[in-house]
């Protein structure tokens, strides 16, 4: 029994496993940064959608509705690749000479000097922005709806007190908007958490990639831990991890909603 315990203790504290635990930081960072950016993009999108200037309103509407017809995974993959290419194209227009372009044999970038190498941190930031853009479109709809559900009387009362337009917006409208937006935003947060499992598609050594490597069958003690194909166990751990995150987020959002709903008629919630 105690030998078993000692074995498992040394198993889960093996150096490779420690790397796996460390890689959770990527997932957590992407979720938090993506969530924050999604709210920012959501606020911006909702503002555009409410704009009185037609082209801006169109931009907001197109932004929020385009995600509906196209899979989020496609956007998530497309944005970092396209951004990298756009930057390389810009660099190429500055540094490439006809000679270097002629010397380049690959299809991209135009010349070797224009190559922009992306490591894990850069990809992680791009992935977070990508998550923010995709789910910001969802948040746009949530916030747009919430802005419209704030009772008109509240805004009229604020105006009657002599508040300026921006004061009404920031002190009354957006303050009260959260109560109506939080249920929807909690759904968006759950989507973002689930989308963080896709980081490995952008060559980030995240928890999924490590689970795959650690679980792969291995019979050479020199290479790593010796076991059969244990991948399903590792994935089961991730499965449970995500369920726990969902559970915790639900609890947290319930607490936040209770707090944000203080002093507001219960029918609003």
């Amino acid at each position: 029994m105690s030998e078993d315990l000692a074995f498992w203790l040394s198993y889960i504290t093996n150096g490779k496993h420690l790397t796996w635990y460390a890689s959770f930081q990527f997932t957590i960072f992407a979720a938090l940064a993506g969530g924050m950016l999604a709210v920012i993009f959501g606020l911006a999108g909702a503002t555009l959608k409410n704009s009185r200037f037609l082209p801006l309103r169109l931009i907001g509407t197109i932004y929020s509705s385009i995600v509906r017809g196209v899979p989020d995974v496609l956007f998530f993959l497309f944005f970092p690749l396209a951004f990298e290419q756009a930057v390389e194209w810009f660099i190429a227009s500055q540094v490439c000479t006809p000679e270097t372009i002629a010397a380049q044999s690959a299809a991209w970038p135009p010349c070797k000097e224009a190559n922009w190498f992306l490591g894990t941190p850069e990809y992680l930031i791009l992935a977070s922005v990508s998550l923010g853009l995709v789910y910001g479109a969802f948040a746009t709809n949530v916030i747009h709806g919430a802005l419209r559900s704030v009772p008109k009387g509240q805004l009229e009362a604020a105006r009657a007190y002599g508040m300026s337009a921006s004061q009404v917006l920031w002190r009354v409208h957006i303050r009260q908007m959260w109560v109506y937006a939080l249920p929807g935003l909690s759904n968006v947060w759950m989507l973002i958490v689930k989308a963080t499992s896709l980081l490995s598609l952008l060559q980030i050594a995240d928890i999924v990639l490590w689970a795959d490597r650690l679980g792969a069958p291995n019979f050479l003690p020199a290479v790593g831990l010796v076991h059969d194909d244990w991948r399903w166990r590792y994935y089961l751990v991730l499965f449970v991890f995500y369920i726990l995150v969902t559970l915790l987020s639900e609890k947290a959002f319930n607490a936040i909603m209770r707090r944000a709903g203080r002093g507001i008629l219960s029918e609003a919630r």
Binding site: M190, K194, A195, T196, S197, L198, V208, A211, D212, G215, D228, D229, R231, W232, Y235, L236, L238, F239, Y242, I243, T246, L247
Partner: peptide, 22 residues
């Protein structure tokens, strides 16, 4: 329902496929 709504489809794919492999 809670388990399958609360976890990513991507992980479900990996988990069930590797389970089938084992």
């Amino acid at each position: 329902v809670y388990a399958f709504r609360g976890s990513p489809l991507f992980i479900q794919f990996f988990m069930l496929y590797s389970l089938a492999l084992s």
